[in-house]
Design a protein around this nucleic acid. Structure first.
Lengths: 221, 221, 221, 221
DNA sequence: GATGAATGAGATTTCATTCAT
DNA sequence: CATGAATGAAATCTCATTCAT
């Protein structure tokens, strides 16, 4: 499973997020790995710590050495994912990027799409867990809105405002336009990772088509 | 809660779906009502039958007189929703509709959108429960794919093929075009019912904008 | 099921044992019939009144119209069996019988064996229930000891004492001799009704052999 | 209760039957001990795990840590009894024994009877539980027939065939003769352990009388 | 750090029994 | 008489968490 490798690396880094000096023991790693599998499969509330311990090859008590509660275990898995989710949106000042580094909006969207697609592929299970649990964990919901939702909304808004100011985007409320853009990409991701995960697809073509659809729908004339 | 009224009626009809002669007792009605509330709030696995019984003002044993298991209760709530979800998609022969009854694709999409929007508003909680549980209940997932996913996909495909044959739609694979259309509408619904349920919105304008976005993105020229 | 017929008749007579004028309703009859089936199959404690009601085609409440408790139902089934079990042992003054009516002990034992064999065949399920429940129901155990155990013991003792007095039976304690006699017959019944119920057998020969075994074992010389 | 001592030892060995390295914790031992008491007293279906836990001085959950279900607990108690029940019947090649080691059939039967009598005395409760539950647990019934019933039947048949070949046993079908022999012994055991457990008895004399009865009943001449 | 036996609160489910209709 | 919805106590079983080793 070559696609597991990056997740392994990711999991091993989780411990350092709280305490940069800490090292994750092998058992701890197995626990997280098992928890991710089982949470993704059965949901947080539907999973039992004993099953996690079993799949991790670890005694039940060992889980609670590392994570005070079952919910702690969940949080330690999904929380770090939030900041990573929006990484490319906070790296750069988009205005600079748009004016200097990329020749076109199309190319810019393509780069971001490919980047997030690869990220999602690597961390699919954890992202699923995060999304599944958000409706039931108010603290997760708040954190997600603040750290992910609003940040991405702002960045996309910036882009759209930029092109609006150049007269290249139709005259609709920006939030509506953000919705079109986000829906189209999320629809692409959901289709290929969740609805039809086993169906082969020409990734590049689907991305390019999606961008064309968005640009045609958004552009003036 | 005025929006509850249609749901009450809906719940009362649930019993008749299995056995048209059956009458739902008042207690049974209270049980479903309470279960819908609590499942929507905490998820199926996170809800306890004792809490449902309490909120319904009923002895715990009463639940199991009517529903053999907790899962039975869930199924009896969400299963009937599936056939209702796709109702307008199976009512008509779309080709006829498109050629005779509606003056334009735009008007047709508008009608469907309004219809499903009102339906969703009425049954929001049950739809939420259904979508939340699909990943964890293989039988629900299968039923949903067969009864909802494929049916809707086929109907939208028909429409798109029709307009393709008239040269009005760009040359992309039909499934891709279906995805664009569905994503845009689902994005609209998700935004207003789930992401920002408290934010006021101009419903008609948002629908019209969404349709315009879709049509611009799909149309040739 | 021709062998069911006598049981049907038996069940219908149960009601009259308490109150000779009472008539058993059809429902009541069905209840007893179902209870006998299910008690025999799963034991008293392992049977549920709801299953009995279901098999009887009767509402749950109906059972409790006729029998105050589940245990009442059990008692009303097995109690009348006790007096019937020992019927032939109390009909006659055995001494008379032995001296006048029968030519030999052998013939006498044969008559009794055939009689009880036919009775057991007819009422097998109820007898099973009775024997199964005796260890757990002190009142049944007491009644059985008094009404069945001791009566039969006394009658068999009489016979043995009679033949002892004629010097035809070996000199062992009478209770021991009773045990030999009873064990041999009970072993015959248990083998053919419980251990190997499906195996065909030459009933008359088995009885005759058993009697010969007993007589050889008991007789002097 | 001096007669408990051997049972204690027996119970402690139960755990090792599945896994020779396993050690039974003190709590686990108390659970089995309590379960044997209560199952024997009230029957399996009539006993509750909460009462067992209470009598064992253990939390109810502890039972289910060691035995997945209540039935598991039953099986772990009675299953090992089966192989032990027939122990002396499989130790030796009976033909050898009869020809060389024992001077007579009488002595041989006496040895076996004493051995099994002592065994039954030690394990009376568990044997009672086993026999009570056999009619209701098909898997127990099958196991008992295969592991106990048939094995003992074959061994006794061997003995009888041997003496038949020497012309010392009357000409009846062997299964019938086995029945006489078994009935007589079982009657002896049942009388003293179950029917009249409190009545004192001259054990040796009763055994010798029983054997004499059998031999007289079986022998030619 | 790791273990796994033990806990006890609570979850789901069963069931004998009651009672209004 | 009969029904069957309703009950609530109790039964079986689960599970996150603790703690002695």
């Amino acid at each position: 499973m070559s696609q597991q490798e990056p997740m392994e690396q990711w999991i091993r880094e989780l411990a350092k997020l709280d305490d940069p000096d800490s090292k994750m023991t092998e058992k701890q790693f197995k626990i997280i790995q098992a928890a991710v599998e089982i949470f993704a499969e059965k949901g947080f509330a539907g999973s039992s710590t004993s099953e996690i311990a079993q799949r991790a090859g670890v005694a039940e008590g060992t889980i609670f050495r590392h994570y005070k509660t079952k919910k702690d275990l969940l949080i330690s898995i999904v929380a770090p994912m939030m900041s990573k989710l929006i990484a490319p949106f906070v790296w750069n000042d988009f205005k600079d990027v748009l004016e200097k580094e990329y020749t076109s909006l199309e190319e810019f969207l393509y780069e971001i799409a490919v980047n997030r697609l690869n990220f999602t592929r690597k961390h699919l299970k954890i992202i699923k867990i995060l999304l599944q649990e958000i409706p039931f964990q108010p603290d997760l919901k708040d954190a997600f809105k603040r750290q992910v939702g609003m940040k991405i909304f702002q960045k996309i808004s910036e882009i759209i405002e930029y092109f609006k100011s150049k007269g290249e985007v139709i005259d609709m409320p920006t939030p509506t336009l953000v919705r079109f853009l986000a829906s189209s990409f999320i629809g692409l991701f959901a289709t290929h990772f969740i609805l039809l995960p086993d169906q082969p697809w020409d990734e590049e073509k689907e991305i390019r088509d999606t961008i064309q659809f968005i640009l045609d729908g958004l552009s003036t004339k």
